[in-house]
């Protein structure tokens, strides 16, 4: 068991290393001198030369890479000249809206997706299954920014139930934050529930034909108990996996929604960094997002190891 987790840890570290490698070398593909890019249009030749030295940009690229890796491994993601602060700080300042948005979105997605998937599997082939599967398919193919715009029009502009955009004044009470998060979280919840519906349906169908489900029925248990206790309990692993994965991908994947709703989150930070070509911020954000993904994966593995009796012993 510990061996398996150890192997997993190693392969996740390799993934992190490769992400860092990709991020570093792809950034170097960008046309233009990185130092000039960092300083912007008004920079003089001396400024640029000085910055090249400070950042070691005059050294061979492999040396730069190793130095950069060292910095990252020690938690230093660089400095943003545009924002005039360390990248890690810029990201930390933006983490809260992103965190709550991801949390609420995945909660909504799971609360909608899991029951819908169960219903769909239990009555497979029936009208209710066709409706649920059809809606899931629809949800998966709606662009979230468009749904966001429509929701803003309907529920914020016309009905006035929610604020149109933003995250409230600094230091606003949490209820106000909630009001700001409600619409974007609903949009992302709907869009992301599709995959959860599909996975729940598929993994439940998979176990519903297992022998122990027949045994459970032969005991005279109600169908609800057979499905919810016996089948669902065994279908949980893939379902939890897809929920965790959804959560992980929402941390950096809510870019468009954050932009539509003007939420000052990490996605928003990335978009403005891209438009300003603020590469240290882009790089840092990619590293952090990948790290969160890797950590959530590791956490899921640990939970399985602790929860599944077959693995535990």
């Amino acid at each position: 068991m510990w061996l398996k987790l150890g192997q997993r840890l190693v392969s996740l570290m390799i993934v992190m290393f490769l992400v860092a490698t990709m991020v570093f070398f792809l950034t170097r593909l960008a046309p233009g001198d990185p130092a000039a890019l960092m300083l912007g249009d008004q920079a003089t030749a001396e400024d640029i030369a000085q910055l090249r030295q400070v950042y070691g940009l005059d050294k061979p690229i492999l040396v730069q890479f190793v130095l950069w890796l060292k910095e990252i491994a020690s938690g230093n993601l660089g400095h943003s000249i545009f924002l005039q602060r360390p990248v890690i700080q810029a990201i930390a300042e933006r983490a809260e809206p992103t965190f709550f948005l991801a949390l609420f979105s995945v909660t909504i997605a799971a609360l909608v997706g899991i029951p819908a998937g169960i219903v769909s599997a239990v009555w497979r082939g029936r009208p209710v299954d066709q409706i649920v599967s059809g809606l899931a398919m629809l949800a998966a193919n709606i662009p979230s920014f468009w749904l966001g715009l429509i929701f803003i029009q309907l529920f914020a502009v016309r009905l006035g139930w929610f604020p149109v955009a933003g995250y409230g004044e600094p230091g606003a009470p949490f209820v106000e934050r909630l009001a700001h998060l409600a619409l974007p979280a609903t949009v992302l919840g709907i869009v992301n529930s599709a995959l959860i519906v599909r996975f729940t349906r598929a993994s439940l169908l998979d176990v519903l034909s297992d022998d122990y489900v027949r045994t459970a029925r032969s005991k005279g248990l109600s169908e609800a108990r057979v499905v919810l206790r016996h089948a669902f309990g065994n279908a949980l692993v893939p379902i939890v996996t897809v929920v965790a994965l959804t959560a992980a991908l929402l941390v950096g994947g809510a870019i468009v929604t954050e932009t539509v709703f003007g939420l000052p989150g990490i996605g928003n930070l990335v978009v403005s960094a891209v438009l300003r070509r603020d590469y240290p911020v882009i790089q840092g954000a990619l590293i952090v997002v990948a790290a969160v993904y890797v950590l959530i994966n590791l956490l899921t593995d640990i939970i399985y190891t602790l929860a599944d009796p077959r693995v535990r012993y």
Binding site: Y212, S218, G233, N234, D308, P309
Partner: peptide, 25 residues
């Protein structure tokens, strides 16, 4: 029928390895 299953009529299945639920004691 459910009231009879397990109480008045019971069944043992062909496959002992897979007929018990793996996640319950």
């Amino acid at each position: 029928l459910r009231k009879l299953r397990g109480s008045e009529i019971a069944m043992i299945f062909q496959e002992p390895m897979t007929s018990l639920n793996p996640v319950l004691t």
